[in-house]
Amino acid sequence: MDTQSLQAFLAVADTSSFSRAAEQLHLTQPAVSKRIAVLENQTRARLFDRIGRRVSLTEAGQVLLPRARQILVMVDDSRRALGNLTGDVSGSLTLATSHHIGLHRLPPILGAYVKHHPEVRLDLRFLDSEQAYQGVLDGEIEIAVVTLAAEPDPQLQVVPMWIDRLCFVAARDHELARHGRLSLATLCEHNAVLPGPLTFTRQLIQARLADRGLRVSVTQSTNYLETLKMMATAGLGWSLLPEQMVAQEIAAGTLARLDVDASPVERPLGYLVHRDRTLSNAARSMLARLDEVREKAALSWPER
């Protein structure tokens, strides 16, 4: 099996489309179809069912899928291991981050990195933290700088870097903004705008409320915190957002910080890599820079 055919197979499997796979690989659709045909000939099995516009994996395709990922990861690891022998910090580095961290935490780190390592081609991907986790597990991403899960996969090396303290906010003319100290129960009587239910941040909030036997009514959800800030400012509901992110709006009076009778809600931010992956020199240099920032942040958390 050649790696190009396997790459085409994964692209079609991930997108459920030959045309989208072709766009992803910068190939024509016939070229992708040819590579799949070659792979099906080599495996002596049909890998996809094509019914109308729908493309789905056959049983043989489902068996091949995890093995194809493993093969490509092993090939990439071998290339990196050989490339590392030169000692050069060059080649490509695939780094994923959430939109919030990418906007508010990473710019100075990335700026210094590209200045010192101009030979590195930085492939920066903005993803939800949960998608970035999976990308590292699948071997598609070398480093992810994201919101950390409460219980990370043991295959991952997870290093905390910052604590993001969250605060309850609402529009300045919202009913809650006219209250004094609020209980969580009173807060839950009003609609909220929060991250999606599968996000680490939402799970953190729900766990806090569940400890009090409470449930929240979420009328709008999005994984983009900047959008949540806009919706809260517009009066669509209260929200829970990073202090650093809403400080300017609170100072300007467009958002009100709610005085809620609860201990601070905090979420850990940091980086993660796969324990079994051979990291490129470019990735090692990025980790060194991230560790410098971590030390300056004076966080003494143990590595998990």
Rank of each mutant, 00 (worst) to 15 (best):
V136I: 08
V193R: 09
L255Y: 09
P118E: 14
S217Y: 12
Y113F: 15
T15M: 06
N281F: 03
G135L: 09
A297K: 11
P195C: 03
I51V: 11
D88A: 15
S98N: 10
L184A: 06
I101L: 15
D128A: 14
S98I: 06
Q7L: 15
A31G: 04
S300T: 00
I163W: 15
T186H: 14
L214P: 01
R294V: 05
A298M: 09
D2L: 08
V89M: 06
L95G: 03
P154Y: 04
L240P: 00
V75E: 11
T227H: 01
E303M: 12
A210R: 06
Q62L: 11
R304F: 13
R284S: 09
L204K: 07
V136K: 01
L272V: 03
L166G: 01
I71Q: 14
M161K: 09
R277D: 05
G87E: 06
Y113H: 09
Q62N: 07
M161H: 08
I205C: 07
I101F: 13
A185P: 00
G237R: 01
D77N: 15
G237W: 11
L166H: 08
C167V: 15
D76Y: 08
G253Q: 03
Q29W: 06
G87R: 01
P268R: 05
T94D: 12
A171F: 10
A247K: 08
D123Y: 12
R294Y: 02
D88I: 11
G237A: 00
T43I: 06
G87D: 01
T43W: 07
L10M: 06
A81I: 03
N223K: 00
A81D: 14
S19G: 08
A149P: 07
V136R: 07
R202L: 10
E119I: 00
P195I: 02
P118M: 09
I51R: 12
L269I: 13
I163H: 12
D164R: 01
L258I: 02
A45T: 01
L287G: 03
I205E: 02
